[in-house]
Design a protein around this nucleic acid. Structure first.
Length: 192
DNA sequence: CCCTGATTCGC
DNA sequence: GCGAATCAGG
């Protein structure tokens, strides 16, 4: 498969929408997420335009490619070259006068814009949603990477654990993390 | 283990 | 230009 105009367009679109590389790859078909990421970089739209949202890591600092343990036949860089030495820093802070290029054509379907949150009803809805497809794992079935969100009444037989795959080191799946970690709320109106 | 994107480098 | 292999992290 080659990167036809259409495919590139789809890539741009999806990437712009915040889709993950793997999802894009899956959508396009015939390419791996690596290919997608590689293309993204080549296209120069590595960061999700806007203001550096999402994963803003990958600090362009010196890439420490430390001692290849094994003779590393593949990698033979040893490029100790860096004539131009700038104090680094390169603070890409507030774009005072950016307006470089405004994305978002016209009818963009609302980019995911997380902001204040107080148990979004969506989160709850999401939970109900996923609970239907929960694996209903028993306590013994739980592993490090299964959602440990309890469902049902522990005092009855109708009790099980979500069991869906968790994503990062979290104890719950994406959906449950949403409702589990509530920033702050209940504190409020404890009026008396 | 699952996933994410980032980078490198042979092709 | 391409993307697998690798890296780095949640």
């Amino acid at each position: 498969m080659s990167w036809t105009d259409e495919r590139v367009e789809t890539l741009k679109k999806m990437w712009g929408e915040g889709q993950s590389a793997s999802q894009i790859a899956k959508e396009l078909g015939g390419v791996t997420r690596n290919a997608v990421i590689g293309k993204v970089h080549r296209l120069g739209l590595s960061n999700r335009a806007g203001g550096g949202t999402t994963t803003a890591k990958a600090a362009p600092k010196e890439k420490a490619k430390p001692a290849p343990k094994k003779a590393a036949p593949k990698k033979a860089p040893a490029k100790a070259e860096k004539a131009d030495d700038k104090p680094d820093a390169a603070p890409a802070v507030k774009p005072a006068t950016p307006a470089r290029k405004a994305i978002i054509p016209a009818g963009q379907p609302l980019p995911p814009q997380p902001s204040a949150n107080e148990i979004s009803p969506e989160a709850l809805a999401k939970v109900s949603e996923i609970e239907k497809s929960a694996k209903k794992l028993g306590l013994l079935e739980l592993t490090e990477r299964t959602c440990k969100w309890p469902i049902g009444d522990p005092a009855t037989e109708d009790f099980w654990f979500c069991g869906l795959p968790v994503q990062a080191g979290k104890p719950y799946c994406e959906a449950h993390v949403g409702v589990a970690f509530q920033p702050m709320s209940s504190r409020r109106d404890r009026k008396r």
